[in-house]
Simulated assay, not measured.
Amino acid sequence: MNICLYGSGSRKINKIYTDEAYKLGCKIAQNGHTLIFGGGDTGMMGFCAKGVHDNDGNSIGIAPGWIGNFEPLCKDCSDFIYVDTMDERKNKFTELSDAFIISPGGIGTLDEFFEIITLKKLKKQNKPIIVFNIDNYFNKMFEMIDEMAEKGFLYNQEEDLFKIANTIDEIFDYLG
């Protein structure tokens, strides 16, 4: 299975998050899956990729070449796909991935998350989406989504657009 990880590339992330990202990468490799990610060598992406590589797993980084001006790119990927734009990157994620894990991140991660659940809502993809809620990172976002539903901005809220996992074991329980 090709598992896409969305997550921050920041170097300022607390160890509680990066340790979990590393363990997630280990588990992805140990289960014979391939990591698809934004190609960053730092933050959630970098630590997950390091866990994959330390366990002889495969990874595919996808990024525009110019993003290296903002963050270092992972040199240990099994394959690296260079694209021209962030939209092309997200399209490649969707095309190549069988499931999506959203880990803690910033604006880019939220952009990727909301795009992939929108595509699922619009029936343009039907792949599993799991929010990895390390240390309750996403709780305020879940509250916001609930409030949007309560105020009538969302409909068919009973749809199962994404799952919430607080542990790596829960992620793999959802993935089967």
Rank of each mutant, 00 (worst) to 15 (best):
I3L: 09
N139K: 14
T118I: 01
L154G: 06
V131K: 03
I16E: 12
G46H: 12
I171N: 05
D98L: 05
G43H: 07
K92R: 14
S78K: 05
N133L: 04
E170K: 13
Y155A: 12
C4L: 07
T18A: 09
N136W: 01
K27R: 15
I101S: 02
A99R: 02
I3Y: 00
E143T: 14
V52C: 12
D146T: 13
G46N: 12
G38N: 11
K120Y: 05
L35D: 06
M45Y: 07
T109H: 01
K121I: 01
I60C: 09
Y17V: 08
D19F: 07
E143R: 11
D135Y: 08
N139L: 11
A21R: 11
E150S: 14
F70A: 10
Y137A: 08
D169S: 12
L119V: 00
Y174R: 00
D54M: 06
I117Q: 07
D54P: 06
K121L: 08
I134Q: 05
G39F: 03
K120R: 15
G46C: 07
Y174M: 02
F114P: 12
T42P: 04
E147P: 00
I36H: 03
N156D: 14
M141E: 05
T18I: 14
I16R: 15
E150N: 14
N136A: 03
G152F: 12
C48D: 07
E147I: 12
E88V: 01
I60F: 07
N126I: 05
F113V: 09
A149I: 11
H53K: 11
Y17D: 07
Y137C: 02
D56F: 14
P104C: 06
I168G: 06
L73G: 05
N166L: 03
G46E: 09
H53C: 06
D41N: 15
M45H: 03
M141Q: 08
E88C: 05
T85F: 08
R89A: 08
D98W: 08
F93V: 10
G51W: 04
K90I: 03
K92E: 13
F138V: 08
D135L: 05
G106D: 09
F172R: 04
K120E: 08
G25W: 03
L35Y: 10
V52S: 03
E158T: 14
I101F: 08
I171W: 09
L110T: 09
D111E: 15
G61R: 04
V83E: 03
G32F: 09
F142V: 07
Q157W: 06
I129N: 01
F37L: 04
K123V: 10
E150T: 14
K50I: 06
E112Y: 02
K124L: 15
V52T: 05
V83H: 03
A99D: 06
G105W: 06
N139P: 03
I164Q: 09
C77V: 13
G38K: 02
L5V: 13
T109S: 09
G65Q: 13
N55S: 12
I36G: 00
N58L: 08
L24A: 13
G57T: 04
D169H: 02
K163A: 14
I16P: 12
M1K: 11
N91F: 12
D87M: 09
P72D: 13
S97H: 02
K121V: 00
K151P: 03
A49C: 15
N91D: 14
L122C: 10
A21V: 10
Y22M: 05
F70R: 07
L5F: 01
N58T: 11
F80Y: 15
